[in-house]
Design a protein around this nucleic acid. Structure first.
Lengths: 198, 198
DNA sequence: AGATTTGTCTACCAAATGGTAGAGACGTGA
DNA sequence: TCACGTCTCTACCATTTGGTAGACAAATCT
């Protein structure tokens, strides 16, 4: 592969389309049109639609992992601050690249093979998060509960908030920069309150 | 409409398929096959795919509204208990009819016309929830924050938890009856902690 | 009984889908 | 110069899609 730029443009475009419109409703033609090439060029770089999906999931996982890893390693001993940093980190793509979390959330709609593919890429961070939560609970610095389920709840809250602006609009919210900042602020104090040791 | 049973069987089946696999990836043939009829019979009862989608959204909204309205009217003056009742109510379909919340969540993937259709059906309850949260905050019986965004956060947490068992599995959770009870328990105390007045 | 309405079907159709085969343009190394 | 690998394209193809037209049977009405 000498010229990788086409490949990457396809990945980026597919990520955006898959993430915003749903994997199942985006055709190879849609992607090719958006990139400005023919469908056959897409099939040259990725041997099938299914292969493209896996590649896009990898692409998304890469992008997400970088952000999260950095936040996990952020300084500060207090667990509430640390969780806060991760929440902010995961929330950032909501503004900069809304499709990213949207794609991760698509996982429920994919078939087993793609699910496992993505799981393999994310399981390490996930395990790390869960055991971190557990250890802080044991030290009494977080509200005690099941750390596994808590991690899931946190994920649902953050990703749901980020991927469903349309729902927020139904609640009367205004979709602009100020609105997003407000949501992030509320999200952070919501999570903080939910984690406060009792 | 003399014979309504076919119509209703189509609606029920379509709700399940749309909710679990995503609206965009389910064809009229899929639905017809699942019901045990031909696609043309589906098109006899619903004049187009788009019409069927709206009807299914109505069907889902009906089912959800009944549950939520009942919970809202539940006795008990303490707002934390009241919110708790609604959370439980919304969580019930997660067990009994997983597709229901899955379909509501699909709203982000639909086009404007269907979104507005569903919004029209749900806006009344939504408004009621928001103003209830606001009034209880003013009385100092809930943590003070933006009630609109809070309602959105609660929705995201509950619906995300309910619709993404696959994600929970990634976190190490076991998908069985005991697991679901545990998730509900954690979800309730999570929400309770997040709402506690400070 | 005869006419009409109701409900499901078979037979199509045009468009879109994922995918194959292979032509041709382009640069690179021998 | 010539062979070769790289990259994008045109030309197809079989299947599936949402949708139309109308046949046919059963129930209902007059």
């Amino acid at each position: 592969m000498v010229n990788g730029s086409t490949r990457i443009r396809i990945l980026d475009t597919a990520l955006d389309l898959f993430g915003t419109r749903g994997v199942g409703t985006v055709s190879l033609d849609d992607i090719a049109d958006a990139v400005g090439i023919r469908k056959q060029t897409v099939l040259y770089w990725f041997k099938s639609r299914s292969g493209l999906i896996d590649a896009v999931l990898d692409h998304a996982a890469d992008e997400l992992l970088v952000v999260v890893e950095a936040a996990i390693r952020s300084q500060g001993d207090e667990p509430l601050d640390r969780v806060d940093a991760v929440v902010c980190a995961v929330f950032r793509p909501v503004v900069r690249r809304p499709a990213l979390l949207g794609l991760i959330r698509e996982v429920t709609r994919l078939d087993e093979s793609h699910i496992n593919h993505l799981r393999g890429r994310l399981s390490a961070v996930v395990d790390r998060c869960v055991s971190y939560l557990r250890s802080e609970m044991e030290k009494g610095r977080l509200r005690t509960c099941d750390p596994m389920v808590l991690a899931g709840l946190l994920y649902s809250t953050v990703s749901g908030t980020g991927t469903e602006p349309i729902v927020l609009e139904t609640f009367g919210w205004e979709p602009n920069a100020a609105g997003l900042r407000q949501v992030r602020r509320e999200l952070r104090s919501f999570v903080r309150a939910a984690l406060q040791p009792n």
